[in-house]
């Protein structure tokens, strides 16, 4: 039910509160995958290990995802100003950058496959692919939500008076970005050796 915000016990919007509650639990979700990855760093069963990562390539795609957070927050800002044209532009830009990231990840995966790093190769490979793969699924879900937001704002279902809808999707998007900030350092950059 959507009681007006002032009527709620905490003076908060239910939907935004629910999103934060959900994001709290998501830390536990990705934390478990990262733990498994760290545990299996050297468990490569003779297969490829972290040396296979292309740091330059991943840095570029990480940068793209990072900048998508900027366009996301600009979309929210534009929505708050009631500037729906600009909001839609930034939303599309965000979704596009998300697509670039996911596409980059797909390309990276196929490259790894060719070099023998497949999910079934070793516990290291399994935990790498499941960790980054589930992050990719999160980004994909985010892209679907962004495109939904974009189309709904075009047909007037999302109105200029409802910046909260952009804000909530933005919270999810930034969260996915923040998880990648962690993955980028922990998985790719730190030379655990």
């Amino acid at each position: 039910m959507s009681a007006a915000v002032e009527e709620t016990s905490l003076g908060l919007d239910n939907r935004k509160l629910a999103m934060w509650v959900f994001l709290g639990s998501e830390f536990m979700f990705f934390g478990a995958f990262i733990t498994a990855y760290l545990m299996y760093l050297n468990t490569t069963a003779g297969g490829p290990d972290g040396e296979i990562f292309d740091i330059v390539y991943t840095s570029v795609s990480s940068f793209v995802l990072l900048m998508s957070s900027l366009t996301m927050v600009l979309a929210h800002h534009a929505h708050e100003q009631g500037d729906m044209r600009r909001m839609r532009m930034w939303i599309l830009a965000t979704a596009f950058q998300g697509l670039v990231f996911v596409g980059g990840q797909a390309y990276e995966f196929t490259k790894f496959f060719k070099e023998g790093l497949v999910p079934t190769a070793s516990p290291f490979a399994s935990s790498f692919f499941v960790l980054t793969g589930f992050h990719g699924v999160h980004v994909t879900v985010g892209i679907i939500m962004l495109l939904g937001l974009w189309s709904y704002s075009r047909v007037g279902k999302v109105k200029a008076s409802q910046p909260l809808k952009t804000e909530i999707i933005g919270l999810y998007w930034h969260f996915v970005d923040v998880i990648w900030v962690i993955i980028f350092v922990v998985v790719y950059l730190i030379p655990w050796g």
């Binding site: 498994a36 299996y40 468990t43 999910p119 079934t120 070793s122 516990p123 399994s126 692919f129 499941v130």
Partner: peptide
């Protein structure tokens, strides 16, 4: 992870490859 190990051949809990 279990689903992966049982159905898709991942190696999370497989001692053979060090899981």
């Amino acid at each position: 992870m279990l689903n992966g190990d049982v159905v898709f051949g991942t190696q999370f809990f497989q001692p053979a490859t060090g899981g």
